[in-house]
Computed example of a mutant assay.
Amino acid sequence: MSPLTSPSPYQIVKVIDEPPHLTIGPLMIWIHRRAYPFIDDWCDRNWLMSTCSIRIGEETMYLTGSDAASDELSEFLSSLRRLRDQQDSRVTYYPSSQAVLIDVVQAEDDCFAVCLRHRNGGRVDCEATRSDLHQWISELQAILHVFPRMTNQSPIGQSYGSPTAPDHLAPELDQNML
């Protein structure tokens, strides 16, 4: 068994029947719910239960758990906007969970080189266009509309909303999973 397919407590075998909420090349991420919605620590309240699937060569790996954080996704969204607006030429997203590291570099005006590195050492290099970049921004806005970044000023146990994402961009999440 290769290190990419070694058994993991986070590995899942069930296929998700809904489209992913964020797709970057062969990386697909589904966000299910907040991991700790009623805890007092606002940092912990930013952790989201997610499923991540990435295809590297012939192998597909799945991880599920509290591996995404809305504050980190918010920073990733801001970085992608700066890349879109040509204020930066590179976006690097290294989540605390270290499941998949994302590096996006502007190669030409409308072309981007994308490198996805799995925590077990696998790597995928692919290309993206400016329209892909716009799609990622929309998908992240939709996720953050439903699961916005929590701060120490955010009330516990109340419904969440984001003033930065329009209502029509909310992802269609399976209510049974929330």
Rank of each mutant, 00 (worst) to 15 (best):
S79R: 02
N46A: 05
R119S: 14
D110H: 01
H118V: 11
I39M: 03
T5R: 12
F38K: 10
Q135T: 09
Q175W: 12
D41Y: 09
L77T: 03
R45S: 06
T92I: 12
L101S: 10
L73N: 12
W47H: 06
S8A: 14
T51Q: 06
M49A: 03
S66C: 07
D110T: 07
T164V: 11
C115E: 15
H32V: 11
N46R: 14
P9G: 07
L173D: 02
E172V: 09
L63Y: 03
L116R: 04
A170R: 11
P163G: 12
H118S: 09
T64K: 07
I56T: 02
A142T: 11
F76Y: 12
P95M: 11
T51L: 09
R33I: 01
S8E: 14
S79F: 02
Q141C: 08
I56S: 00
S89W: 08
A69Q: 15
E18R: 05
L63E: 13
A165Y: 07
P3L: 01
M177S: 10
W136F: 08
Y93D: 14
V91P: 06
S74R: 14
Q141E: 10
M150R: 10
D85F: 06
R81N: 11
M177T: 02
S154H: 14
H145V: 00
D103W: 03
W47R: 01
L173F: 06
C111I: 07
E139Q: 15
S66T: 01
Q86M: 13
I102H: 00
A99H: 00
V124M: 08
E72W: 13
I156P: 05
S138C: 08
G65H: 03
L140H: 03
S97D: 15
A69I: 10
S96L: 09
Y94R: 07
V91Q: 08
L173V: 05
P155M: 13
D40G: 09
I31D: 01
L169Q: 08
L77W: 06
F38P: 05
V105R: 00
R84S: 12
D44F: 13
L22C: 08
Q175I: 10
V105N: 10
S138L: 13
C43I: 10
D41K: 15
Q106Y: 05
R33S: 04
Q141L: 15
L48H: 05
H32C: 00
W47V: 00
H118A: 08
I143L: 13
Q158T: 10
Y93K: 07
I16Y: 05
R123H: 11
Q158K: 13
G25D: 02
A68Y: 04
P171E: 02
E58A: 14
L63Q: 08
V146I: 06
R149K: 10
R149P: 00
P166V: 12
I31F: 00
M28C: 15
L73T: 08
M28E: 09
C111H: 04
S159G: 15
E108K: 01
S70N: 11
Q106G: 04
G121M: 07
E58M: 13
Y36H: 10
N46C: 12
C111S: 12
P20C: 04
D103R: 00
M1S: 10
H168F: 12
S79H: 09
D44Q: 06
G57V: 12
S74L: 01
T164I: 11
A165W: 01
H32P: 06
W30M: 00
Q11L: 01
G161Q: 08
G157E: 05
